[in-house]
């Protein structure tokens, strides 16, 4: 499997990354190297091996359902570009 330039641009667009043609070429080459590595790994016989969803073989720790966080809105909003009436303001987004 290998990626073409169009797919690289699409992936970049989905991640909201603006990349130049030169960067796209470079990225495509790097990604295709990774795919080559994956292909190599695919050759290993993994019959009967459970796929892992995480590198660490542990179970998720759970916390009790309790409110432990106090209101820190003032601190958080001090570094926000724009706020009003307790809201964060962002460029208009409406569907």
């Amino acid at each position: 499997m290998s990626l073409n330039l169009e797919q690289v641009f699409r992936a970049a667009r989905l991640a909201r990354l603006a990349i130049s043609d030169a960067e796209a070429e470079r990225t495509a080459a790097q990604l295709n190297n990774i795919f080559a590595l994956i292909e190599q790994m695919q050759a290993v016989d993994t019959t009967g091996v459970e796929p892992m969803s995480h590198a660490v073989d542990l179970a998720q720790r759970l916390r009790p359902d309790a409110v432990t966080e106090a209101d820190r809105r003032a601190d958080f909003q001090a570094i926000a570009p724009e706020t009003e009436a307790g809201l964060y303001l962002v460029p208009k987004v409406i569907e």
């Binding site: 359902d65 209101d71 809105r73 307790g86 809201l87």
Partner: peptide, 23 residues
């Protein structure tokens, strides 16, 4: 629940904006 699924912030309805939103 009293608190969020992945944090200890409260889930009560109708609070002032952003006072139940932690880091």
């Amino acid at each position: 629940t009293e608190s969020k699924i992945f944090s200890g912030a409260a889930t009560a309805f109708g609070a002032e904006p952003n006072i139940q939103a932690c880091g």
